[in-house]
C-alpha cells in the first residue's frame, strides 16, 4: 500500500486542508506571504500541495513550483519559511492522529520541493 492510501486518500486531503491552511494563515512567521491572496484559489492550491505531499496523484512539476513562488522569493522567502510550512503540515497531521512514521514520510516528500520553491 502506498503512502497516499495509508493516509486515507482524498478523504485525508479534505480533512487536512482547512486545518493546515488555518495554521499557515495564523503562523506569524509566514502569514505575510498570504496577505491579499484570493482565498478560494489559495485553498485549491493548498489542496493540490497536500495531495502531492501525501504521495497522491498529481501533475506538479518543479517548473510550476518555481514559477508559483518566484514573486515570494523576491519578497524574501527562505529556508526558515519553508521549515515553518513543513512544521505546520506536521502539526496538522498530528492533530488528525496520523502516526509519526507517516508524518515523517510526508515531510520527506515535501522536502523534495524545497529547492524548486526557493528558486535554487
Amino acid at each position: 500500500m502506498g503512502l497516499y492510501e495509508e493516509l486515507g486518500g482524498a478523504a485525508a486531503v479534505n480533512a487536512a486542508v482547512d486545518i493546515f491552511y488555518r495554521k499557515v494563515l495564523k503562523d506569524e512567521r509566514i502569514s505575510r506571504f498570504f496577505k491579499g491572496v484570493d482565498m478560494t484559489q489559495q485553498a485549491a492550491k493548498q489542496k493540490a500541495f497536500l495531495t502531492m505531499a501525501f504521495g497522491g496523484p498529481n501533475s506538479y512539476t518543479g517548473l510550476d513550483m518555481r514559477k508559483g513562488h518566484a514573486h515570494l522569493v523576491k519578497q524574501g522567502l527562505n529556508d526558515s519559511h519553508f521549515d515553518a510550512v513543513v512544521e505546520d503540515l506536521g502539526a496538522t497531521l498530528k492533530e488528525l492522529k496520523v502516526p509519526d512514521h507517516l508524518i515523517a514520510k510526508v515531510a520527506a516528500v515535501a522536502e523534495t520541493t524545497r529547492n524548486d520553491v526557493l528558486g535554487r
Binding site: 486542508v17 482547512d18 495564523k26
Partner: peptide, 15 residues
C-alpha cells in the same frame, strides 16, 4: 468580502 472570507475561516467556518 475579502477580509471577511479570511476572518470567518479563521473563526472556524469550513472553506
Amino acid at each position: 468580502v475579502d477580509a471577511a472570507r479570511v476572518e470567518t475561516f479563521l473563526a472556524g467556518a469550513a472553506s
